[in-house]
């Protein structure tokens, strides 16, 4: 699987108390070009992410399927209750199957 040039960024605490709800913010730099837009009389070629998949300790946690109404540089926030040391994996996939991946760990204080 080839890599996306896009740079993902995650904001997540490094540790949490057992039972604490944490906020996870994700952002990936991507034009999300729909193919509907024109510049100087030419249609700009479609270049869209299709999916963000987030796993927690190997299990599906949250995913987003993107359509044309998702903004440039897709940004998502969601909330997780931390019960034990947690490993998060974030994978974005574009319509050509290219992927960007990052991960994060949250320790239990």
């Amino acid at each position: 699987m080839s890599a996306l040039p896009s740079q993902p960024r995650i904001r997540i605490p490094r540790s949490a108390r057992a039972g604490e709800v944490i906020e996870i913010r994700t952002l990936i730099e991507h034009p999300m070009e729909t193919g509907l837009r024109h510049e100087a009389g030419r249609a700009l070629p479609r270049d869209m992410l299709t999916r963000l998949m987030v796993r927690l300790n190997g299990e599906a946690l949250f995913s987003a399927d993107f359509q044309n109404g998702t903004a440039t540089n897709p940004y998502h926030v969601f909330f997780v209750r931390i019960e034990k040391p947690s490993h998060f994996e974030f994978i974005w996939t574009d319509e050509k199957g290219r992927q960007a991946r990052t991960e994060a760990r949250v320790a239990v204080a």
Binding site: T34, F62, A64, Q67, G69, F78
Partner: peptide, 27 residues
């Protein structure tokens, strides 16, 4: 009234603390 009506679909699981999502969209 967007040229195509779809914005996004979010898939949630009970591993999430609450059914809350924040994002940014195009109109």
């Amino acid at each position: 009234r967007n040229p195509t009506p779809g914005v996004a679909t979010f898939r949630l699981t009970p591993l999430l603390a609450r059914a809350e999502v924040q994002t940014r969209i195009r109109l």
